[in-house]
Amino acid sequence: MLNIKELLDKVKASPYREIVVRAPHTGVVEFAGLKQGDTVRGPGGDYKEKPGTLLAHLTREKNRKPIMAPEKGEVEVIHSRHEGQFVEAGEPLMTIKHYLTRKEVIELILQEALYLFRAPERAKYYFVPEVDQKLKVSGKRSVKVHEGMEFLIVSRMKRETPLAYSGPEGIIYSVYFGRGENVDEGEPLIGVCPEDQLTVIQDVVARIQSEWEEQE
């Protein structure tokens, strides 16, 4: 049985995640005047329609593009030597110290509790259309997977092949990959919860909900 207290204590010992904000593409950087220690907001609103705090602008081919904070946190490092300079794609611009939210802690601990179906190889993954549809319409936890069920499409080098599930029968509780994203070999794709353990998992979630104080 899962020791939730122990797991929570482990997370509490280092309740931060470092987010490295990188240049999404090449261009000339202008920072937005933040200082180390400043707090930034992530996108907010019911539909995440309110953008996060402006961190910098990146100008490429006469197009000035804002870069916003992806999450709430505190500015830890600003690579100000790039101010007014041309940077390559992927160059680190800032580091934000992000205090884990309740939701993130739940996901973190659930990874210990759920059965993780992992990527057999580095590739892009998609759900097969039927599963995709169901997840979109009825939400996660609406799809049951069982041994041998072809539920994913593996896409690499412009070719696509189906991938069958193997592991205990259960419902898809968590999805760990994004559309069009490369997943490394061995990384978890989905977290599966056998139906008879659903109450246990819900208990875990409830406990974290009550025990994890979100930092304001």
């Binding site: 999404p24 593409h25 261009g27 490429r60 041309f86 390559e88 794609a89």
Partner: peptide, 16 residues
Amino acid sequence: VYTITSYLDANELFSV
């Protein structure tokens, strides 16, 4: 050598 996001992004090429 310059790192860009994609060989298919013309803006990246012109920027470099």
